[in-house]
Design a binder for these strands. Structure first.
Lengths: 196, 196
DNA sequence: ATAAAAACATACTAACTAGTATGTTTTTAT
DNA sequence: ATAAAAACATACTAGTTAGTATGTTTTTAT
């Protein structure tokens, strides 16, 4: 990796950490510079504006996270619904860089940026759609495996799962206790059991 | 109402509108002053700080909204589960001051403030707990009516409903289309049908 | 080795922000 | 009517913010 690219990537990584923790607006460029030991000149050599960096963070940091942790586990599985449950459980309780107090990065950014930044909105929208489709396909696989009917169900169920996941992440942020995850997971299991 | 109280309440109302629309940090005091035609002197006569106003908005504007629209409908109903569905449907599609693009005020504030303001967190936590209890009690009523067993279920179900509601509000913010509400409501109905 | 380009460093600016200092007007109680 | 308190108005300040201007250093290709 070239030196310049290294600096750039460092900004993206540390920037993501700070934004995930404190929010986009609450994270100043100066703060990012302080934690990365990068100077302002270097920063603006790599990014035109703060928003330019924000979009790059989504594309180059958040997107791979989603790919690896939210989408990949669902592919090539023989027990699709069971896999969905295990993935959600793992996201809530095991994945180390997703923190109780910080919530879900995608949900956070959606919440904060949607009102006033259309570029963020578009990039996030694409990302979310990919996750949605992955879940939908996963459900379809289970439906096919078991010769269940009802074509409308997969989309509905995907919406329900995504929504409940985002919501419980918010719940976790405010209660600051993983207990709510455990309660949620119990009910998620009950909910998904309708496929069996 | 005294003149002073009127000014104060006006600030709270317009302040809520702006914060609900744009977020807390993105809403400046100057912006609130401009839309209320109140001067800075008057503002700081009524509120010690911006955060003081923020907390007052939650206590005096958001809380009544929750009481009237999220809790009251669940009380004294003969068909509790059906009532939960109707309430959520009404919140998503009918209640005029809740807007697709703006999401859920409580969820928004939770998301944004939790990382750095403990006072907001506490006030919001109480508010959310009240809603949670109301839903739980509603479910318990249905369980009693039908002599169903399983003591753990009501809390789980309440968590699931709240989470899914918050999540779909987030979904609405990014897709900017009520279609996702309709899909969600279909699945919510399916989910709740387990009680029948 | 050297010239060009890439990468970085420093000092500055203009706009905005929450909050204050200090004064005036309006309301209220007597 | 008048004094006190409540309510409001204006001008200002100190700190922060994103972004710029202008330079220097480092890397790369020849």
């Amino acid at each position: 990796m070239k030196k310049g690219s290294k600096t750039r990537y460092n900004i993206l990584e540390k920037g993501f950490d700070l934004i995930y923790k404190n929010g986009y607006q609450a994270t100043s460029i100066d703060e990012i510079l302080a934690t990365t030991k990068v100077t302002k000149g270097a920063f603006y050599y790599h990014f035109k504006t703060k928003d330019d960096m924000g979009v790059a963070i989504i594309k180059e940091i958040v997107k791979p996270i989603i790919q690896e942790n939210f989408i990949a586990p669902l592919q090539n599985t023989s027990k699709p619904i069971e896999e969905i449950y295990q993935m959600i459980k793992s996201l809530l309780l095991e994945v180390p860089f997703l923190k109780l107090e910080y919530g879900c990065p995608v949900s956070n950014l959606t919440q904060e940026m949607t009102p006033w930044n259309i570029e963020f909105t578009n990039v996030l929208n694409k990302l979310i759609l990919e996750w949605q489709i992955a879940i939908e396909n996963c459900i379809k696989k289970e439906v096919n495996n078991r010769n269940l009917l009802n074509d409308e169900t997969p989309k509905q169920v995907a919406f329900f799962i995504i929504s409940s996941y985002w919501g419980i992440r918010n719940f976790g942020k405010i209660t600051k206790s993983k207990d709510c995850y455990l309660v949620y997971l119990k009910e998620l299991k009950v909910y998904l059991s309708k496929f069996f």
